[in-house]
């Protein structure tokens, strides 16, 4: 089913998302991949404040190619989510509601999704040119030194994704 959702994402919206739904996301989302997750993890270990507010927000596992002049971003498809599995449960426990990536998740992540009434989306891997068309603005807001791996705030309009693991833990990859 096609569903149009906005960020920040509420429990009510999440309760209505089922594995297999096609969603179109509008609003602000944040990018973070391997190096940014590692740094956020270290920040938390040092009892310091994270550079982004996770509450009811979505993290997109993505490191774009550089933007050509006059464009907000370059190619911008998802990276493999499982590399973030080590870090995701803690972020979910801190209020993160959604993750966009591609591929399988660990049992610990799925448990944390259920525990926190969250959701895991996949966008289409290897479709970075197409996906970039739904990104209207992009701004580095933390860890600039990480280049493609910096944390970016994206304004997206009808960004397409598929619900893979819903708040009940139903997993689309296991259903095919």
């Amino acid at each position: 089913m096609d569903k149009y959702i906005e960020t920040p994402i509420t429990d009510e919206v999440i309760n209505n998302l089922k594995a297999g739904d096609f969603v179109f996301i509008t609003g602000t989302i944040y990018t973070a991949r391997d190096a940014a997750h590692k740094r956020m993890y270290e920040t938390l270990r040092n009892q310091e404040k994270l550079p982004i507010d996770l509450k009811n927000n979505i993290i997109y596992y993505m490191g774009p190619s550089p933007a050509r002049e006059g464009r907000p971003i370059g190619s911008a498809g998802p990276t493999t989510s499982s590399r973030m599995d080590k870090y995701a449960p803690e972020l979910l426990d801190l209020g993160l509601k959604g993750m966009i990536g591609k591929g399988k998740r660990s049992k610990e992540v799925i448990d944390a999704i259920k525990r926190n009434n969250a959701v895991y989306f996949a966008s289409i891997g290897g479709a970075g040119a197409l996906l970039s068309k739904s990104i209207k603005e992009s701004k580095v807001i933390a860890y600039d030194d990480l280049g493609a791996e910096a944390i970016r705030e994206l304004k997206v309009e009808n960004f397409p994704a598929i619900v893979v693991i819903d708040h009940d833990g139903t997993n689309l990859y296991e259903q095919r």
């Binding site: 993505m62 490191g63 774009p64 190619s65 050509r68 370059g74 190619s75 911008a76 498809g77 990276t79 891997g125 290897g126 479709a127 970075g128 040119a129 197409l130 970039s132 068309k133 493609a148």
Partner: peptide, 12 residues
């Protein structure tokens, strides 16, 4: 889109 707009096919 990649070819027409010179956006890499994949960001990786």
């Amino acid at each position: 889109i990649a070819g027409e707009e010179m956006i890499p096919i994949c960001q990786d």
